[in-house]
Design a protein around this nucleic acid. Structure first.
Lengths: 204, 204
DNA sequence: CGTGAGTTTGACCAGTTGGTCAAATCATTG
DNA sequence: CAATGATTTGACCAACTGGTCAAACTCACG
């Protein structure tokens, strides 16, 4: 393993290549289903060479996850208490949808983990994510109490946004097969905007 | 392997126990992540004993999947062209949600497969499911054209129903952690009914 | 209660997998 | 260009995994 001095040119390049390859492999086979050899080959390295940069398969996975979670929550963090409620929510939905389009592997990596019971993620969900969700749920509740958006269970509202947007990344294989030639992302933004607009636009 | 005569009492019991155990194990670790030993132990058998009833790990998986897909599509098949459109759709949503509550392992097994690119399911999705979806999408489009429900992309409408309902099974670990004491299934039916009612109730 | 089919198991095998290590090669810099 | 540290690799290991097999055991039934 490289000393903990400043990383050399080669270290930077190879660590990046490994993480990129690992994202590819882990997101399409899950942790258990992925082999170090697969990742090494995808990164253009030999297995021992890869293990020169990371102490273990699990270490690669953890670093990937740590990096992922931060960017993953950014769109929700950006939900602005000062903004116009409905537009804020619609913008959040579109940001999240955009992430499913641009980073489907990250979405699937996360989905893989949660579906399998989140063994390696339970702590961070129970702490960081929980705090953020509580905060934003209160914000949404406030907007509802003020009559600025229609009432709905705030946490379920958040779940529905995650679910609907990530579905296009996580179930990509199914969605594309059923859509035929049509790109799912052509109509999805419109569909979701309509859905949440109709649902949340305040009715007297 | 047992001869292909009528199954004995023991065969019936053990095959059922194996499939039950396999559902448990496969749905929480995926195919690659599950071992025959795990399944055998969960079924209360030794590994060679299990392999006396099924020729291979893959055979267990396939039999499980074959059984699953049929029941999985039933709720959609039951969408009745003769019924009142909005109520038909709302009933479909509730049936699907009920399945997430009653058969979360089946949902996760399916999710696991699709997230990983549906390698073992692509054919059946492209044939059986595709036919069913095309049929029901036309039905929904007809209802919209007749002004009986609000307009929305019919396939995306179906995707959203799957996504929202299955989310409660597939992301159960996350949902429960974030809901604390509250059972997600307490508010979910109400939330989804409201969502689709507001979205689809025809507006002049 | 004996006997043949149905059932169970311990021992085993070959292939895979995560990970190690010493030796070889390469890059940087004094 | 020497020499020192960084990088790479082939050979290897122990644990695990899917699957086999012959021998032992159990059960239903005449």
């Amino acid at each position: 393993m490289p000393a903990d001095r400043a990383p050399t040119r080669i270290q930077k390049k190879n660590r990046a290549a490994i993480l990129e390859a690992a994202l590819d492999v882990f997101s399409s086979h899950g942790f258990r289903g992925s082999t170090v050899d697969q990742i090494a080959k995808a990164a253009g390295l030999s297995k021992p060479n890869l293990l020169y940069y990371f102490p273990s398969k699990e270490a690669i996975f953890n670093e990937l996850m740590a990096g992922l979670l931060d960017t993953w929550l950014d769109p929700l963090r950006a939900l602005d208490p000062e903004g116009e409620p409905l537009e804020e929510i619609l913008a959040y939905v579109q940001r999240k949808l955009q992430m499913s389009r641009d980073f489907p592997r990250e979405s699937r990596l996360y989905a893989n983990e949660i579906v399998q019971g989140a063994p390696r993620l339970h702590d961070v969900i129970a702490s960081d994510l929980n705090v953020l969700v509580e905060e934003k749920a209160r914000l949404l509740q406030g907007w509802m109490d003020a009559g600025r958006i229609n009432r709905a269970h705030p946490k379920h509202l958040l779940f529905s946004i995650w679910s609907l947007t990530q579905h296009y990344a996580d179930f990509d294989a199914q969605v594309r097969t059923l859509m035929g030639d049509e790109d799912p992302f052509d109509a999805a933004p419109q569909y979701l905007e309509t859905l949440y607009r109709r649902m949340l636009t305040p009715q007297s």
